[in-house]
């Protein structure tokens, strides 16, 4: 931990930000030096070049579109797939956690699908959905839905039976126990799942966009690869990294707001 008493000029939060910035700057300097002065320069363009190209990409199009459009279209694909994954994942997870029957029916099927990496589905998805956006949604969906299901299932399994007993004792029927106890007490687990899933879905977008596309950050990288443009590949990677970072922070901020009651464990 950073001790705030020894350095009273900055708060803990400010210090953390300062250290983060220092670490980033160091990374960039090392990258720049390695790319300029070692033999790695053959495969690794210098940081300055990548960053200029990155900022330029917001004004000058890569292919037919500027970077903002590429990021936007990729985000749209992730958002659609993520929405489906959330609804189906929560329903399946809570269902399996709450009902033995539901668990017996769906758990084996789910456990069978779970270890298959999303990219393994690409050939089938082309066969089933052709080269449309649907195929991309499908791949991203598979990339994030398992995380949501597993976490929700965990949450619904771990509901304190005494809380369910208390609710029944106070007159709640089974439907009320489900919606007022099982579901809300799974919310922190669901959020943990959503957080992993949003990052996983965002990483799956590259794979999904490998299926014939003309836009998207994944396409920027694939396109860079096929034209031997290393700078463009790195620009795509930087964009994916930055957006992923922002998404992860947004979901955890949302979690802090919605699960404020969970701040202190062990009540």
């Amino acid at each position: 931990m950073i001790d705030s008493t020894t350095n009273s000029r900055f708060t803990n939060k400010q210090l953390i930000i300062i250290y983060t910035i220092i670490s980033l700057v160091c990374l960039l300097i090392v990258w720049e030096l390695v790319a300029r002065f070692t033999s790695a320069s053959m495969f690794l363009p210098p940081a300055s070049e990548v960053l200029t190209a990155f900022f330029r990409s917001f004004a000058e199009p890569i292919g037919q579109h500027t970077m903002l459009f590429h990021v936007g279209i990729s985000l749209y694909r992730v958002a659609v797939a993520f929405l489906f994954a959330t609804v189906i994942g929560i329903a399946l997870g809570v269902g399996m956690g709450y009902s033995r029957l539901f668990e017996a029916i769906f758990k084996p099927l789910f456990e069978f699908i779970r270890p298959i990496p999303p990219l393994a589905w690409i050939p089938l998805s082309i066969l089933w959905f052709g080269l449309s956006d649907t195929g991309k949604f499908f791949i991203i969906f598979l990339g994030c839905f398992c995380f949501i299901t597993v976490n929700t299932y965990d949450g619904a399994k771990n509901v304190d039976p005494e809380l369910m007993g208390a609710a029944r004792m106070l007159g709640a029927n089974e439907r009320q126990v489900f919606f007022k106890i099982v579901l809300p007490s799974s919310v922190p687990y669901i959020f943990a799942g959503l957080q992993i899933a949003v990052t996983a879905g965002w990483s799956a977008v590259v794979g999904a966009e490998m299926i014939q596309s003309n836009e998207g950050v994944g396409w920027v990288i694939i396109r860079g690869m096929s034209t031997g443009n290393t700078v463009q590949i790195m620009v795509g990677i930087v964009a994916i990294g930055i957006v992923g970072f922002i998404l992860a922070n947004l979901t955890s901020a949302l979690e802090r707001r919605l699960c404020a009651w969970n701040a202190q464990k062990g009540i």
Binding site: E162, M169, G171, P184, S185, I267
Partner: peptide
């Protein structure tokens, strides 16, 4: 079975923490 004509106060309080 449980019924609202009987009230229960728990050893570990068992309040609903999200409420």
């Amino acid at each position: 079975g449980p019924a609202p004509e009987r009230g229960f106060v728990y050893q570990k309080t068992s309040l609903f923490p999200w409420m």
